[in-house]
Design a protein around this nucleic acid. Sequence first.
RNA 1: GGGCGGUUAGCUCAGCGGUAGAGCACUACGUUGACAUCGUAGUGGCCACUGGUUCGAUCCCAGUACCGCCCA
Length: 1026
Amino acid sequence: MPMEKTFDAAEAEARISAKWEADGAFRAGANASKDETFCIMIPPPNVTGSLHVGHAFNNTIQDILIRWKRMQGYDTLWQPGQDHAGIATQLVVERQMAAAGLPKRVDMGRPAFLEKVWEWKEESGGTIVNQLKRLGASCDWERNAFTMDEGFHDAVIKVFVEMYNKGQIYRGKRLVNWDPHFETAISDLEVENIEVAGHMWHFKYPLAGGETYEYMERDEDGNVTLRETRDYISIATTRPETMLGDGAVAVHPSDERYAPIIGKLCEIPVGPKAQRRLIPIITDEYPDKNFGSGAVKITGAHDFNDYQVAKRNNIPMYSLMDTRGAMRADGRPYAEEAATAQAIANGTEDFDEAKIAAMNLVPEEYRGLDRFEARKKVIADITYEGLAVTKLVKSIDVETNSEHLQLVPFVEDKPVMQPFGDRSKVVIEPMLTDQWFVDTAKIVEPALDAVRQGRTKIMPESGEKVYFHWLENIEPWCISRQLWWGHQIPVWYGLDLSYDGKLEDEEDLDEVDILGLLLSDGMLQRGTVQHCAASFEDVQNGFFDNNADIPNPLSHARIVEVADKHAAIETLAASLAEYNVNQDPTHLVYPVWRDPDVLDTWFSSGLWPIGTLGWPNNTLELQKYFPTNVLVTGQDILFFWVARMMMMQLAVVGQEPFDTVYLHQLVRDEKGEKMSKTRGNVIDPLVIVDEYGADALRFTMAQMASLGGVLKLSEERIKGYRNFTTKLWNACRFAEMNGVWEGHATSQPPQAEARVNRWIISEAAKTRAEVDAALEAYRFNDAANALYAFVWGKVCDWYVEFAKPLFDGDQADETRKTMAWVLDQCMIMLHPIMPFITEELWATTGTRAKPMVHTDWPTYGEELIDADAMREMNWVTGLIDDIRSARAQMHVPAGLKVNLLLVGLDDTAKAAFAANEALIFRLARIESATEAAEVPKGAITVAAEGATFAIPLEGLIDVAEEKARLTKSMEKLAKDMGGLRGRLNNPKFVESAKPEVVEETREKLALGDEEIAKIQAALTRLGEIS
RNA sequence: GGGCGGUUAGCUCAGCGGUAGAGCACUACGUUGACAUCGUAGUGGCCACUGGUUCGAUCCCAGUACCGCCCA
């Protein structure tokens, strides 16, 4: 059955995919002919994800590499998988439950909810896998991994326990990005900073005790421009509601305006007058003298910069909000809290973290208000009291036409960068909370050294600078999330019963002890003890040890797990009460509860390389494929994922996870803008695949992938590469029509005699070297372009045309063989980029030992390159180009076959012409060729190396036009030769330049001069016609 | 404000010491033994600017301008 006119991608892709899968073509080690391995870990997409152009690009690059290496006979593994995407998944499932009218998460309870999540995962978690398959991604799908799989889960927990035991993980109160919608800490990555229209309010903080000072402003020359007596310090803020938690006012140490009041106290101008807090005026490098008033309020618990200032200066940080971003309503009455805070500010009372955390400095009338409501009220209250900074505004009364000067609050409208949760879309609140951290400073050095010492290479190199910059300034990594879906932190807490020696173990538990424990303050006020282990069973010993010092039989109480601290207190109380009555020690229990938080998804995906290979078991795969070879990922997650994988793998197994990191940019639209639903410029890769085929999309991706390049995807381009697939298809169809494939099996390069055949074989060899070099260097664009230039520019444009006359001649057989081989090479070398069409052509065109996906990648090189053939065919194609060009410019009808005169051919030219006469005749539309002593009058002249050709067209050509044509090309040549001659005449050039450069320049000049002479002769000849 | 990039043909981008390339677009012609998802020919560039290094700079260095991205 003859081939169709075009490749039907839609029909073929599904069929070919199914075949690959059925054959296990992508299994680890498939087609391996050497021991050397090549392994890529897929950057795990979210299990909730669906394929976007970023995935399409990222996975195309990986697939190109893995297919190329697989064909080369490496033992390859492309490990696929998904991560559990804590927040995203929880959100999706909660939404779905709401839509289905199911109870809310909190009402349902943790175990039931997690069951729902798993149900969802089983049903919908495979979406992206199927989409990746449509792209042709040749992952070992049977090994598909998931960060919540049992084995992976256990590995994550094991790492946590190990790092905890090494002191690399700790719990602490830190300022974190808090999402008030999801009520969890989130990572920096999950925060989008967006510029929004904001306001800057200016308020007066009165000095304590009505003190005054001389406030002066100066211009650049030091002249006083403003001088007044003030009893306040002016503060600018974009977040007035946080004033309630201010701990200080800071100014720059060099700011002379405020020098007189450093160290004094000022009053926060909000809240009940009687309990206004006084806070110190301190100096710190942070305030910018030129920004606002130069004085900054310091609210350590609600701003990242302030947090640093507060830490440096030991300023208390008062939390003002609850987990939903409303003003706190817990704690003691405001008057009491404010008094304590004042004592702290005065230095008369000590404070520690826990004490400060428990205090609620929100005045009663603000308690429970949403943060944005609170802001409005603070502004209104301060303004009402006259403590807003004001300015004079001129207004004109319309009725009386008289001018009025009016004082209005000074509020600047200014754009501010505001943090938003990327999923919740609510404003993120910096919050002081108890969180778990990885002490990154302790594990960062090996990750830095690995790149510094070249064991891991980041491409493009600019990525290394960014990597160093970030890691050298690394912050502790907050790894706890207040979610349910994820790896629950393997730490259990128990009540600290050995507190302050009240319970002595010298005697057994008596009634006094029990009452002491049960009294309201007894257990609640006590701290907790914590232990970390992989399971509840494993953690119990730790608690036994803690309890060793407390009285019998409590020290031997059975350890039970309860929900939380509250339940623990109740359980212990009940147990003690029961014991007090029946004195039966066998019923005594010591309750512990597990930390409810889960780990940041990045913590688990940080273990992706070893986790997917079966660590901590020393699996065959782990031994074989780890460390892996390349990680292909987006620049945007260099810190969040790549750097963390480096740190984690080095911390856990002491090896770099990969030797090369290939970073790429975000895929944008054709104008370079980010794709977004609101902009409406989103390109759906699957729609593209439907319309143009996966191969066209993939080729486009490869072609865009210059190192460090901006990725601008345009549909026009994709269309262009779809055309390229058609071109290849039709070249093969042409071959089919000419019997090229008859009896063809995958072959060795044919022993060809004809220069044309030797030439195209040489071109194939050259291309193979170029493609390999490009892929070795991760220059996918170079590989794609080299293939495009070879397949279209050499094979289709020239070789297929050359073959047409040869099929009728003596060399028809070798030409058929050569064409079959050359087209095979096109298919093979294109396969990593365009797997579908090449697999289809492979099956259609000959008898094949193996499917394309497992066909051996060529290794031929220099031995196939015939320099003489290349030179000769370049001369031939150049001659044909020149004749065609001259004909077109002289308006010789395309259909008109003409006679060609050969003038003064040297031996080389003569031989070249004779050997390729048929091709030249056909492509340049020549009827006949005759030798002539000279160019006759009224002919078109074409100068070539070692020859002059002429087409006699007396009476047909426009002499003036031919003169103009020749003059133009001569002028261009003369200009170029002028440059070359200038260089050669410069003695310094001849002295300093490399000898081969000088030689090359001489040759170019000689050839150019020769051509000029020929054109000159032609012009002279033309001049004789009149 | 700090860091990292970019500025080359109308557009999208390669090239990064030896005097400029591709694809697309554009113009003209064209049913030449596969392909109109095509063919042939053609137009198009002070390689952002200013200095420096060099025999020689689009390429290396310094500065300027503008444009991105990341982090504050």
